[in-house]
Computed example of a mutant assay.
Amino acid sequence: MKKVGTLLAVFMLFSSLCFAEVEKGIIDTIAKRIEFHGELEAGFWLESIGHKNVKGRVEDSEIQLTTAALAIEAEVADWINVAVVPLFEVDEFFIDEGHVTLGPTENIPLYLTAGLLYHPFGKREEYTHFPDDPFINLPLTLYFGEIWDPGVIIGYTQDFGPSNITLEGFAVYADVSDSEENRQVDTFGFNLCYNISTEDYSFEIGGSWINNVLDSSGFKDYFDEEGAWDGEFRTEKDIDGVAVYASGEYRGLYFTAEYMTATSTLERQGLIGRSGEKGARPRVWGVEVGAALENYVPLPKPVEVMFRYEGSLDAQEIYEIPRNRYAVGANIGLHDYLTWSLAYAYNDYNEGYGGGDPTGNPTNGSLFFTQMAIEF
């Protein structure tokens, strides 16, 4: 009996060690193949707006948990990656992204991404160092060019030493249908850009085209508020969109510039263009310059300062954005994962713009904003 008990104890010990090794192997595999990235943002804004038909100024303020996100990325194989991004954004919780990417590999520079994703039309929030939407409407190009729908992206990247060229084509299963309520994969476009990067500087230039910019989030939000659609915007005419962009960085100094336009007039009752005639051809743009001060001045914490100018034509009524915006801001790195941001923006509106504002015709506005962001 003692021998049996000893053998049983040895067997149990061996089994527990084997299980521990298997468990350790699973944990090691998960740690190696799965990555987590988190983001938590809380902000406060105070806005003062002047109106053509109202004495004094209208003031408003808000404090809000603007963003809480956890990105989960898994490397299934060397050439298969999946990503899911649950997101809380100003009182809404939803899946922001969920897609699988095949490639590229060392031998094949092609890649394919399919699922729920943001399609590569312009650069939008990639081209600003200010705290981005949804809290303070930065940048303006985000409303014009954000294409967020299920779809597929096929890309090709060719390296030339320190530089490379990337060509991407995309097709969108869009929330846009015809009068017979047929939803089709008929929104598509491409993005082409050239990049060069060295130890001292980097530079990028590129352009995008889409056959129906009416599928952007900004257009759909406008028509949703106007009661023009019940979950799907219906159109008989596609409106092409074009975006061009460039950016550069040299020893802590940087600049970005982006321009987006519709190629034809959006004719819809109630939309008035600059000429006062029916219809509008919206255009938006933004230019930003900034510097990392710690590269030039000894500071206890990293500090980045920036200035941004944005403008628009025929876009105020659709997006409720200003004709001109001038903004200054700073990002202060309090910790490796914690950033404190401050920003001030002056907004200049066309006086004829009424929008949905019950007080009528804003003329100008001042916006102060601050945010704490944790990223890991």
Rank of each mutant, 00 (worst) to 15 (best):
Y326L: 15
A291I: 03
P298M: 04
I34Q: 11
A74P: 01
S216F: 01
K301M: 13
E232D: 14
M260A: 06
E146A: 03
A228L: 10
L17M: 13
Y201I: 09
H119Y: 09
Y245Q: 04
G311I: 13
I63F: 12
Y118K: 09
I332T: 02
L367K: 15
R124L: 13
P109G: 03
M260L: 11
E35K: 13
A83Q: 11
F144R: 03
L140C: 12
Q158N: 07
G50A: 12
E47M: 12
E146S: 06
T235F: 03
V303P: 01
F14S: 09
F144G: 05
T113A: 11
G290W: 03
E21K: 10
P139K: 00
A291R: 06
F135A: 09
V284K: 05
L167T: 02
K55I: 10
R33T: 15
A330P: 09
S208D: 07
L266P: 02
E288R: 00
D178G: 14
S163N: 06
L8T: 02
D348H: 07
Y259F: 10
D238C: 03
Y194T: 03
A114M: 13
A31R: 05
E249L: 00
E146Y: 04
G56W: 00
G50L: 06
A171G: 15
R124N: 10
I239F: 05
N211P: 08
T105P: 11
Q64I: 06
